[in-house]
Amino acid sequence: MIGYIIRRVLYAIPILIGVNLLTFALFFFVNSPDDMARLHLGVKRVTPEAIVKWKEDRGYNKPLLYNAANAGADKLTDTIFFRHSVKLFAFDFGRSDQGRDIGYDIYQRMWPSLAIALPVFLVGILVHITFSMLLAFFRGTYLDTAGVVLCVIMMSISALFYVILGQYLVSMLLRLVPISGYDVGMEAVKFLILPVIVGVVGGVGASTRLYRTFFLEEIGKDYVRTARAKGLSELRVLFRHVLKNAMIPILTGVVVVIPLLFTGSLILESFFAVPGLGSYTIDAIHSQDFAIVRAMVFLGSVLYIAGLILTDITYTLVDPRVRLE
């Protein structure tokens, strides 16, 4: 298994280079270094000299990918792409175009992101599995039909609607928790309740419907019939046998997102004013801070790859038939 993991890590290197190149190409297709400078320097009294200086200070005065003016390896290394990308592989994120230490900002913002994402993830799994098992248990009944219809309705509604409805209902009408904001320590709890509820409820439709399908597929298999024939109660069959086997496809979708919990939620963090990595990324895109955008995309890619490797490892744990060669 160790050999397999090493091989996967090595495969990740060209993938990360590709992701970096793609991010770079997309970013600079939309923005030029001059655009970035103007946005950072403001709209009033910006002189061409100030733009030149801004670009020089941040290394954006170099060619994008190929420096024909240089000789040898410098043709490739003395470019914006090389200077801004290579250090990422050592997890040195450098400084943002505003001058802040990106690594420190990521470290600071990771915790608020986790504070929302982790409860949403854990409570979400519990709630979604419970609901889907309930529907599977009452399969073919009116309850099942009503549940599926409700799931389809819920998954058709925009996440933004849940946010606005939640804020209006829970914070404005019932006045149970703050509308938005964040604090440190235990004071943070009151700010997390609503985004976590919204995050969990927002995911009920899609996840419950998916998991129900997994459960129904397992329920129709021979080993379940055998278990029933042995006289086991339906609940026991569901929890002891069906749940265990249905967990394999569920894990496929679940484990891969665990590392990505660090990167936070774009909508939840923006609307609930949570200073996490999701809002950090959105802000960077709005302010055309390429240094942060590339760092966050790189981090997201690394975490996604880590999630995929983790999923493979988890398979071996839950299904003895799987071997990583």
């Binding site: 606005i164 804020q167 404005m172 006045r175 703050p178 509308i179 938005s180 609930f272 004013a273």
Partner: peptide
């Protein structure tokens, strides 16, 4: 000064006296 990017939560907090 609290960071509140979205206008609706900001407005509602004003109405609540916050």
């Amino acid at each position: 000064f609290s960071l509140d990017k979205e206008s609706i939560p900001r407005w509602n907090k004003f109405l609540q006296g916050y």
